[in-house]
């Protein structure tokens, strides 16, 4: 039973890992071994009673070994067969073995660790598991850079889409309101960020401040759209949100040459034929370019190093704590 289970779980994770290694080669085996090893360790122990960390580790080692074999095999195939056959530069045999063994080792080690954690007493087991996952999230970008796998851009895209899906789930899933214009709020948030954190309008606030404002503005837009459309039902609501979703991009694309004249004064100016009477409120000498049209606002605030360091400086360290200074020296 035990063996069957180990094999079954390893065949799914293992084939995923092997495929990844075959596609990317190099250190990708180590990264995927680390990630999937943790998963394998957890899956091997998740629905059975694990009395002590030691028994957990024993189960975990089995799962890790199974996964490690997949990775090692894939690494060797990639290095010795696939690479030369596809006409890329060959790598030395030692290097190939190094990739394979590190992948194998990391898979076994992380699976053992994760499984051993499952053997802890209850509150600590939970804490330790979450801690490990948090550790993976924090370390992943660095591991990704070190291993030169270049997955981080895709992972970020995945997370953004996951956030969008979670948000859409609230009106559609919980409330049952078919919202086809959800992306409009995405646009509103993005444009708010762009306007407030880019050189375009000369407001270059820190990303970590702007993100809350953007969330607030999008929420207000949601309320503004929501209030009048509340009486609508089913598909009529769908079409109104769809319409809203169409209007917003057009508005953002076209708010490039704004000039606002006070209507009563300009009416009087036309009547008396004295143009100087018209009061101009905005964009008088040169029309005001709010959204920069089709080109969009770019170089919007960067959530990365510089911005994080700057906000950390403002918020946390007036004096100098060494960690932030390490950040700052790295980035500024």
């Amino acid at each position: 039973m035990n063996l069957v289970k180990t094999l079954r779980s390893s065949s799914i994770l293992g084939s995923i890992a092997a495929l990844t290694v075959l596609l990317f080669g190099g250190w990708s085996g180590a990264v995927i071994g680390w990630l999937l090893g943790t998963a394998a360790g957890y899956l091997a122990t998740h629905d059975r009673f694990v009395p002590t960390p030691k028994t957990g580790a024993q189960t975990g080692i089995q799962a890790g070994l199974a996964l490690g074999v997949w990775i090692m095999a894939a690494s060797l195939i990639e290095g010795l067969l696939l690479r030369p056959l596809s006409g890329r530069a060959a790598i030395p045999l030692g290097q190939t073995w190094l990739y394979a063994l590190v992948g194998f080792g990391l898979a076994v080690a992380s699976a053992t660790l994760m499984a051993a954690i499952q053997g802890l007493a209850n509150p600590r087991q939970r804490q330790a598991t979450l801690l490990t996952l948090a550790f993976i999230l924090i370390i992943f970008p660095f591991a990704d850079r070190l291993a030169q796998t270049g997955w981080i851009a895709t992972v970020i895209q995945i997370q953004i889409f996951a956030m969008l899906a979670l948000g859409l789930n609230i009106p559609v899933g919980y409330a049952g309101l078919l919202d086809l214009g959800y992306a409009a709020f995405f646009a509103i948030g993005a444009y708010t960020t762009g306007m407030l954190s880019s050189p375009h309008l000369g407001i270059e606030w820190n990303f970590w401040i702007v993100i809350w404002i953007a969330a607030g503005v999008a929420a207000i837009a949601g309320v503004i759209l929501g209030t009048p459309t509340l009486p609508l039902r089913g598909d009529y609501l769908a079409i109104v949100t769809l319409g809203f979703g169409e209007i917003i991009p057009i508005v953002f694309r076209n708010l490039t040459d704004i000039r606002i004249m006070e209507p009563i004064s300009s009416l009087l100016a036309t009547l008396f034929n004295r143009p100087e009477m018209a009061i101009c409120l905005l964009g008088c000498e040169e029309t005001f370019n709010l959204t920069n049209g089709e080109t969009g606002i770019n170089r919007s605030g960067d959530p990365g190093c510089r911005s994080l360091a700057a906000s950390a400086l403002i918020i946390t360290c007036r004096g100098t704590t060494w960690c932030w200074c390490w950040w700052c020296s790295r980035c500024l």
Partner: peptide
Amino acid sequence: WTDAWVFGVLV
């Protein structure tokens, strides 16, 4: 702005 007007009227 035509599309915006069309959908605006619809809403």
